[in-house]
């Protein structure tokens, strides 16, 4: 039995080795979740409650509005632009795909001003929160990026 398991595992690894497309895939799907947070009111207008517990624990805002999530297919050397509330834009660029991580540049800007410019090596699957661009009187934008779809 041990010998059989060993040979099966070896065969799987060798097949991965000779199949370059699995390792060299240059297309990645990222889920973009847009939230607007503020302290005006106590509503959690979330499409689903997946983030509710996380938001309560991580941030001190009392009100959250959630947009419909967007699934973006990123290809190397191509930018993808997602319009955000309040005139912001999110630009995602896939820079590299490694064995179990993706290297993504995320840029949030508005009217030519760059609010965030970050390059992230994200585990696939993985999640990262970007936040802070002001919305309204005292609210903020929170973007959740998830890989592994």
């Amino acid at each position: 039995m041990r010998k059989l398991s060993f040979f099966v595992l070896s065969a799987v690894l060798i097949s991965l080795w000779i199949n370059p497309s699995l390792q060299a895939a240059e297309r990645v799907r990222v889920k973009v979740q847009v939230l607007t947070a503020s302290n005006e009111g106590t509503d959690f207008n979330l499409v689903n409650d997946a983030y509710r517990d996380q938001l309560i624990e991580l941030f001190s805002y009392s009100h959250y509005e959630q947009e419909e999530p967007v699934l973006v297919s990123l290809q190397r050397a191509e930018r993808s632009k997602i319009d955000l509330p309040d005139g912001y834009e999110l630009i995602l660029t896939l820079q590299a795909v490694e064995s179990n991580r993706v290297l993504v540049q995320a840029l949030i800007r508005r009217e030519g001003r760059q609010y965030v410019d970050t390059v992230l090596s994200i585990l696939n699957p993985g999640v990262v929160f970007l936040g802070g661009p002001p919305v309204g009187a005292n609210g903020a934008l929170i973007i959740v990026l998830e890989t592994g779809f």
Binding site: R79, I91, R109, G112, R113, Q114
Partner: peptide
């Protein structure tokens, strides 16, 4: 616009 010009160039 500088930012736009950069994006357009790239």
């Amino acid at each position: 616009e500088r930012e736009a010009a950069r994006d357009i160039a790239q």
